[in-house]
Design a protein around this nucleic acid. Structure first.
Length: 350
DNA sequence: AAAACGGGGGG
DNA sequence: CCCCCAGTTTT
């Protein structure tokens, strides 16, 4: 039944595949980097990052040896920063255990940090021609529509069953093309929200949802839980030509990145001034710097900003604060986009 | 099995 | 503006 999709999908892919940077020279390293970047991230956004990343770190060895600061800077704006930290951990393991080459073995790939069944399947099939499925959201959408499967695709069990079904039907001589054809169909034809382009679909003839006019009802997903709301006060502290930033803790949200000093809750100007004094800084002037919002997947920051001019000691570091000039803040320190509303106070003159 | 983990695009 | 997108690890 499902095996009927194999040939039409493969010939459709041959004709219609997009030319993408990571398809030009699909070495295991290239496929790996692109697949990690493409997790939770759109193709258009990844293109630039991919080029810059490989220019900076052309070989797996370079990734293994890169200072974390530089690595985070290369990743700045892509989000889910654990992806790149895990990638470096994995690169170091590969240097030690596999002589610098990603193993041509699904199970071994799966054991590397940051590589789950999807990425292991993608690298194994695309770079090594090993017949393993690579089931991502695109594939799940395509398959649940074809089979009109009403199960919740957010469930792990659903993904596992799909992987098993696809392993059965995938061509053993071109597993990479088969996997990519499913993902490509999901990305360009069997698209989410909005109209699927069933008129151009190579497998419309075998698609149950198409036959019954229910395409838009799939995939089914359980309702997601509500986001937590957090109020924060963000401080833009200027001392002469320098501004205060600090490094976030090594674990948790935005781990190890830099941020503008900020505190939980909405502080009054009095509370802010006494906080600033507590840092052995002398506040000269304070005014509001506006409100901003940043939405993460599971939490929402509602921020009120304050712009504060201070006088201070000669020291570069005051408590946990680091004073940097405009240029440095832009070029050297990775600062996540959650703070972008307030970075303009640093980058422009006030 | 559920929660943590960012950021961008579309309607 | 709100809604949607969705791999891997951790709990």
């Amino acid at each position: 039944m499902l095996e009927q999709i194999r040939e039409p999908l493969l010939s459709w892919y041959k004709e219609n595949k997009r030319s993408l940077p990571w398809r030009e020279d699909p070495t295991p390293y290239h496929v790996w980097i692109s697949e990690i970047m493409l997790q939770q991230t759109r193709v258009e956004a990844v293109k630039e990052y991919y080029a810059r990343f490989l220019f900076a770190l052309p070989e797996l060895k370079d990734l293994a040896e890169c200072p974390e600061e530089r690595l985070l800077k290369l990743w700045e704006g892509l989000g889910y920063y654990n992806r790149v930290k895990n990638m470096q951990k994995a690169a170091r393991e590969v240097m030690e255990q596999y002589d610098g080459r990603l193993p041509a073995d699904y199970e071994k790939l799966l054991k590397l940090p940051g590589i789950g069944s999807y990425t292991a399947g993608a690298v194994a099939s695309i770079a090594y021609g090993i017949p393993r499925p690579a089931v991502d959201g695109n594939v799940l959408r395509v398959i649940t529509r074809i089979t009109e499967n009403p199960e919740d695709i957010l469930k792990q069990s659903m993904k596992k069953k799909t992987e098993e079904a696809l392993l059965e039907i995938m061509p053993k001589d071109c597993p990479g093309d088969f996997n990519q054809s499913l993902m490509e169909l999901g990305a360009t034809v069997c698209v989410p929200n909005g109209m699927a382009k069933c008129q151009c679909c190579p497998v419309a003839r075998v698609c149950q949802a198409y036959a019954h006019g229910t395409v838009m009802e799939y995939p089914k997903k359980a309702a997601k839980k509500q986001r937590k709301i957090e109020e924060r006060t963000v401080l833009v502290i200027q001392n002469g030509q320098e501004f205060a930033i600090s490094k976030r803790p090594p674990k948790g949200l935005l781990a190890g990145l830099y941020e503008l000093p900020n505190k939980e809750g909405y502080l009054t100007e009095e509370e802010i001034l006494s906080f600033v004094k507590g840092l052995h800084l002398i506040p000269l002037h304070i005014r509001e710097a506006g409100e901003a919002k940043h939405i993460f997947s599971h939490v929402e920051w509602r921020m009120k900003g304050y712009f504060i001019k201070v006088a201070a000691t000669e020291e570069k570091k005051v408590g946990s604060l680091i004073f940097v000039d405009r240029k440095e803040s832009r070029g050297k320190y990775p600062i996540p986009s959650a703070f972008s509303a307030y970075r303009k106070f640093i980058e422009e003159d006030f």
